[in-house]
Design a protein around this nucleic acid. Sequence first.
DNA 1: CCTCTCTGTGTTCATATGTTCATTATAATG
DNA 2: CATTATAATGAACATATGAACACAGAGAGG
Lengths: 325, 325
Amino acid sequence: MDLQLPDETDLLTEIAMAYYQNGATQEEISKRFAVSRIKVGRLLRKAREEGIVEITVKYHPVFSANLEQQLIDRFGIKRALIALDQPHEEEQRSLVAGLVSGYLSNALTDDTVVTVGQGRNISAVAEYMGVTAKRNCRFVCGIGGIHPRGGLTNADHICRQLVKKFGGSSETLYAPAFVNDPTIRASLMANPTITQTLDLARKADMALVGVGDMSSNSYMVDLGWFSAQEVSDARMHHGVIGDIAGYDFFDIHGNTSHNIMSDRIIGLNIEEFKQIPEVIAVASESSKSLSLLGALRTGVIDVLATSVSNAMAIINLDDLKQNKA
Amino acid sequence: MDLQLPDETDLLTEIAMAYYQNGATQEEISKRFAVSRIKVGRLLRKAREEGIVEITVKYHPVFSANLEQQLIDRFGIKRALIALDQPHEEEQRSLVAGLVSGYLSNALTDDTVVTVGQGRNISAVAEYMGVTAKRNCRFVCGIGGIHPRGGLTNADHICRQLVKKFGGSSETLYAPAFVNDPTIRASLMANPTITQTLDLARKADMALVGVGDMSSNSYMVDLGWFSAQEVSDARMHHGVIGDIAGYDFFDIHGNTSHNIMSDRIIGLNIEEFKQIPEVIAVASESSKSLSLLGALRTGVIDVLATSVSNAMAIINLDDLKQNKA
DNA sequence: CCTCTCTGTGTTCATATGTTCATTATAATG
DNA sequence: CATTATAATGAACATATGAACACAGAGAGG
């Protein structure tokens, strides 16, 4: 490999250093480096854009560490990645995604196998801008295709995006996520290509999944995954309040026994996710606190990524529930 | 635990967010939050000081990631933390220390046991300013006291500083690092207090050690650790070019068999360091590149923290050496 | 009770910085 | 080679920011 530096980078770095670390003014720097003051400004901007200078706003470190610790203590998870609250849903997602992205760039090494779920939150992780070293890991779809066309939040597309970002290879599950007839599912599940991919997904080192609430998956009704009747049944009679990866349902107690459509899904079920050593659950929307509580109680989750307010809400809800009991 | 936010923190965070992430001007913020513009400025400064806002200048991320990857590939280490070059040795140390400090604040969890070495580089890690969450880890001296008085770079003092920074407890090895007579060493090693501490150090999850070159430990001669004759012997006849933790010597090939004074040292030997799952070696001085190459080749090191130029030098030196072979 | 320091506040002003625009180098294309 | 498109540059200006100062309220000690 070539060890030559891109010439300018050196300058950028030195200038950024002088400005941000040593507190020099742009004018001083312009003299020292014999460039116009205005150019110094431009170089500094470039340094920020290229990620040479990174400005991060964290929650107060002590406090956010406390939050994390609480979640760890209560739910036996390994880490909690907690992002600042943002007024806009989009930005909130991106902020949470940034934390996950950072976490992954530490955690992923050569030969790590990651099972990838679907949805906007996972998609945001893959889309999150930011340079990182390439390595040779494998991203495997944990579920078939959901949105038939232009599915930017489908697992296969996300996998490819993740490869772009982190390096490695991706493996697509060539099947729809949902079929109407259990017998069709059975025949798909017998297909060697599909079996192979699913087997890899089951034995992955990590999984990256979203957590949904019951409103967020109304699109499932639209897509014909199941009937409005079934949804209402699940909510009313079985107390289902959320899902992992889009289709593995649970109630507020983390009970996962009411899975109404596991016989029509091509994707990992909740027991299979449990077998994966590190399941990273991502959920940024503030409407999901209750679902997250249930999700944490299933014991599936090892790393939770969410917002400050969700984290606090989860803890408060858990308190409530415990006091009742 | 109390989930109440320190009132102001919330404000600080929101303001910092608006300013640094959304690019709002201080004036805009002042209107939105109904405080004077100047106060916004002051709050922003406070946010920076408290570590809510963090501005870091990195080497060009792609390039530095490449450097790290090369070191990982060549020497089978787990991570390389590479800091920008600085003209002044002091600042260089502090920059490298900052990376290590950041790394530790991710890596240390409750009950982590860290064996701590001595020297200016390790001391710099402990002294490095920066807020971080407190946890309950244990720092154990891996070596006895070196500088008899005011030893700010002695392991025991560093341990206590680390506790201040990261929380937890520290354990001092109540013995001198060096004795003249092997029999004295033997009797010290039989002392239950000392044995206990050393045993803990041997079974640590992590170690934090410096790497020295043969010039940097001339102080050992001054302190009477060994004679000038012995040093020159080690260098000339055995090819010793550096040390880990101050007294575990190796040559350019990473050969550690010439340890001239292990029978007079109270501290972990190189084999014992090898048993520790994660040995973090810190060396910032640009004179140490050759020593670092040797150190990496011993296979003791799992995480290396050094400067860009050292990292590049190591790779180049390793190339040279390989071409010869 | 008063004074004194101390901290927090807003004002004014000098300075630092970003923006816009016209200009010039550079590259791309016929 | 001429010509256009594109990007880089610096000047002038407008704006944003930080520093020095002066003032007010809160405790502390007499």
